[in-house]
Design a protein around this nucleic acid. Structure first.
Length: 212
DNA sequence: ATCCCGAGGG
DNA sequence: CCCTCTGGAT
């Protein structure tokens, strides 16, 4: 897709959603980090349902440590991958207290040193909490970027770099949320809703990989 | 490449 | 039934 078309895509996505925000519910940077860690291969809805059970009373590193691995495992059992996630979150709480005074660090290196925190999760925290121009490429953004031609790439890292290169600066800070919402509600995985898509006329998909 | 792994949709 | 959901570690 040409640069002018990319710019027009984001102009329209912004018009449809002027102030995009994550649908994960959280009341602090720490809670955002935990919610994103839990969101791996899970819907925001199921994550919010689980975190509502313990954020109110245990929404701090100390609070989660008081629950213990067993308590947290029980609280998030309705989310996939719950054993690994509970273990990683508890260990992360310990490391935050040991290394960062209980605060969430704002450097990629420190974030990725936490267990269960990879590049994608670090990018979400850097962008959403610290407003840095980081692009977290998740399943939605990978699909939308490739399908539309906004930023094609064979790996998530390639797509991330293509987005950083191709998305106009003006839209970079919020591009993450526009793309994810577009992927969740319009450019869905199975049967994209092209008839109601605001950028269908600019998209590569209808001409290229038409399957139906 | 494989494992982890529940819930919701089609 | 099968696919998908804001991945990460090995």
């Amino acid at each position: 897709m040409k640069r002018a078309a990319i710019e027009e895509c984001f102009r329209r996505l912004r018009e449809a959603n002027p102030a995009p925000r994550t649908e994960l519910e959280y009341g602090s940077v720490f809670q955002l980090l935990v919610a994103v860690m839990l969101s791996a291969q899970a819907t925001d809805r199921s994550v919010n349902l689980a975190t509502a059970r313990f954020f109110p009373e245990h929404g701090t590193p100390e609070g989660l440590l008081a629950m213990g691995v067993e308590g947290l495992t029980e609280a998030i059992r309705t989310i996939g991958l719950y054993k690994t996630k509970a273990r990683n979150v508890i260990r992360t709480c310990e490391l935050l207290l040991e290394r960062h005074g209980g605060q969430v660090p704002d450097r990629r290196e420190d974030l990725e040193a936490l267990p269960g925190v990879g590049r994608k999760t670090a990018n979400v925290v850097l962008n959403t909490a610290f407003r840095q121009p980081a692009m977290a490429v998740d399943t939605h953004i990978f699909r939308v970027s490739n399908r539309t031609g906004i930023a094609p790439g064979k790996t998530v890292l390639a797509v991330e770099q293509a987005l950083l290169r191709r998305v106009p600066k003006e839209y970079l800070l919020d591009a993450h949320h526009w793309l994810i919402l577009h992927g969740r509600y319009v450019c869905v995985a199975r049967k994209p809703k092209c008839p109601q898509c605001p950028i269908a006329d600019l998209c590569d998909y209808p001409d290229k990989t038409r399957l139906d």
